[in-house]
Amino acid sequence: MSDRPADPWHILRRHTAARIALGRVGDGLPLAHLLDFQMAHARARDSVHMPLDFAALEREIAQATGLAVRTLRSAAPDRALYLQRPDLGRQLAEGEAAKLPPGPYEVVFVIGDGLSSRAVKDHAAATLRALQVRLAGWHIGPVILARQARVALADGIGAAMGAAMTVMLIGERPGLSSADSLGAYLTWGPRPGLQNSARNCVSNIRPEGLLPEAAAAKIAWLMNEARRLKLSGVALKDDVPEALPDNPPTPPPFLP
């Protein structure tokens, strides 16, 4: 399938990643482009549905950071219910809260599978390690790995552990060309019932987007500001120094 039919104006493709000038067979889409699309969709779906290997991730995070690691479950028992009941993904399953190590801590990192297990598998450890080296002197709690997790799951975890702040690393809703995008959500004073406007977000962490190193620099900057100002969200302006890449400060419309 190396042949990619095109319209005579295919030169315009240099201006955009949009699927333009694809050519036609009659009125239909040429097969090569049809299959390209199906492959992109298949990758995105696999990112949503492939279970994350939590045992392997636990080992990887422990090795990369030297921090204690615990794995917990949200109240969503499986992917189908996770997708239909976001409220379940925001609470811990019964009995899980008792397994949380009590703090207080300055920050607790929570890593959730979210909507892309691939993003977490590929980028979570690298991002966390890059972040850790920028947080000298911080009192960091054990890392919590969470199955079938939504962003707000970290609120209850942080509150139970006495964390001044949580940073949730979570797989973002995959696009056709970004099946492995990781998001980081920073919340000062985590407690159940917080609105998304109380968080700051660094999104699109992946090789073709924001590299883990650059993301870590930005998250660390936001963490220091949040600790200094004792707040996060819309009131924490994202005036990151120019040298750092630009990114939206508050969560996008589709939170995992």
């Binding site: 333009i20 694809l22 889409l29 699309f37 992109a40 809703r173 696009g175 056709l176």
Partner: peptide, 10 residues
Amino acid sequence: PGADDIMLNY
């Protein structure tokens, strides 16, 4: 284009 909105990701 190609049914793929590269801005809104749907």
